[in-house]
Amino acid sequence: MSGYNWNWPILLKEPYFGWIVSGFGSTCAIALLAWAIAFPLGSVIGIARTVDNRIVRGIATAYVDVFRNIPLLVQMFLWYFVVPELLPKDLGSWVKRDMPYPQLSTAIVCLGLYTASRVAEQVRSGLESIPRGQRYAGMAMGLNGFQVYRYVLIPVAYRIVIPPLTSEFLGVFKNSSLALTIGVLELTSQARQIEEYTFASFEAFTVATVLYCLVTLLVILLMRIVEGRTRLLGAITAGG
């Protein structure tokens, strides 16, 4: 790195400091809103993959297969370039022109639906890791199908899958960087922009890296607390 001109203070100068702040804000907004789609939808699909009804199970399986086998970047392009053309004319032109924050909203929907397929897989594996006897025990006690899930299976399954769901949540933060391909100015693209304007590439990418790492550390600490608070006495955990 000989001859490299270090210039850390440039990160605190305007407009660069503001770019970092707004980029980090966009990254958090995309990640949190996409998670707000992914968690409930993924839960429903994951549960649907474990029910007895073949048709429901088939639809849920197809959803997961489609969303997991197309690269996220390709999905981003499909939502941004292809889907508006396939919609009815009025709706399509609304999406393209009048929708608020078109790129940001598209990125959130795309990331949310993609992450739902990953959440679904975790929820399903959590439910399947519960011995079948518990389901039968619930039914023997006179609970109906819904009640078995509500009072027996789900409370246990979600505790088991807290660690994998945590890494899916962190995955949303990392994957939100793909929004830059359709023009959203999130953290990674702001770092790239600072690099292009100032040639302070090392500084710009370092600050982005540090922020991503901080988010990771914070989320992991938070989820450890959640995991500790929700632990069931004597429950079988994923570790065996």
Partner: peptide, 24 residues
């Protein structure tokens, strides 16, 4: 843990702009 907390795009940018600078 460090690499797993970074987005792949950022890693690509790191190496795309920095490797040429580092090895000159």
């Amino acid at each position: 843990n460090f690499l797993r907390s970074m987005p792949l795009i950022l890693v690509i940018f790191w190496f795309y702009t920095l490797v040429p600078k580092m090895i000159g």
